[in-house]
Amino acid sequence: MGKFIKWGLPALALVVLAAGWWLGLVWAPPDREMGDVQRIMYVHVPLQWVAMVAMAINFVVAISYLMKASWKLDAAAEASAEIGLVLGTAGMITGAIWGRPTWGVYWSWDPRLTSQAIMLVTYTGYLVLRRFVEDPEKRATWSSVVAIIGAINLPIVWFSVRWWRSLHQVQSTPKTVDPEMTLALRVSAFGMLFLTIWFLVQRYRQALAERQAEVALPDALPSDLAAAGGANSSRVA
């Protein structure tokens, strides 16, 4: 199983992703209105989907950590937030590039775009917070609280921006999707998903090893050491 995750999963992910992109870039027909520019969909939409998956994992894991503290959940939270941020940033950049030929501008204050930008800032703050707190237990608890509050905020942001921009028509791409397009999109999405799972597993292992090293580290202050009666004073399992 370990061997499959280490070598098989990335290989599978790359093969499926390459197949999906080949289908999208070569095999599928150009869009009736957007022409070849529409082929950006096969990279942009999967990125957005897997970023959402990563953020959803982060939210669930944060709630679980507050219910039952464990380093595994904390490591999963760190992994999913970081990977969600990377994928979401890539998704937003590709979306902006797609917006240039279709809307004429890179950036518009459309609810989806704005909410995503705010989401990226929120999770940047989350990761910065994790950097700035040394105590692993406090870091885990506080970052869970921040993750929950940040995730609750996103639907509120979406609604408020939609109201705010109510004078402007929300740009939406006409749904004239051919079956070829759906297939290419699905294959690309699965490839991206496998790649994300592989990233998540690798990052999770790394975060977990880091946590265990931190907890195993003897405390610097002698008084703490005496009070704790040992190196591992952690309450977290």
Partner: peptide, 15 residues
């Protein structure tokens, strides 16, 4: 209909 625009497509995949 938008014609061309492969530059945008390659930019997205490349990035």
């Amino acid at each position: 209909r938008i014609v061309g625009g492969w530059g945008y497509v390659w930019a997205c995949y490349g990035i």
